[in-house]
Design a protein around this nucleic acid. Structure first.
Length: 118
DNA sequence: ACCATGACGCACA
DNA sequence: ATGTGCGCCATGG
């Protein structure tokens, strides 16, 4: 039985940053959405550098727990969808399936749907 | 240790 | 309202 350290792991353990991201996103309720920037702020409150919205996107992209972790509920600050590892189409499906309407690549009633993580 | 990449955000024109 | 450019941070090679 090879020791873990000698085995090449396809699913590397998440960094502290990523773990924090996933934890935060997990709190976003069904039917609501949050933004990369909002998550970044929550991270800042947790001691991480502020303004890491882009890094958050990176973490989502590498999210090994998708769709366990609802990363599809994370959109851009202007209400546009942003990206999705499974394809934009997929992201839209998941959202609408949860009651979130997407119109012209943008979340309908964005301000109302928006959820601020803590 | 350095350079390149990317699911962002914001200011400007 | 739309498009372009620049800045920011965490990762991977």
């Amino acid at each position: 039985m090879a020791t873990r350290k000698n085995v090449k792991n396809d699913s590397p353990a998440p960094t502290e940053f990523q773990a924090a991201c996933y934890e935060i996103i997990s709190k976003v309720p069904t039917g609501s959405v949050t933004t990369y920037g909002a998550v970044a702020e929550a991270l800042a409150r947790r001691g991480f550098p502020s303004g890491a919205s882009r890094a958050v996107g990176n973490a989502m992209n590498r999210n090994p727990f998708a769709p366990k972790v609802p990363c599809h509920r994370v959109v851009c600050s202007d209400g546009t969808l942003g990206g999705y590892a499974g394809g934009a189409r997929k992201k839209i499906s998941l959202l609408e399936r949860e009651g979130v309407t997407v119109k012209a690549g943008r979340v309908a009633e964005f301000a109302t749907r928006f959820y601020s993580p803590n």
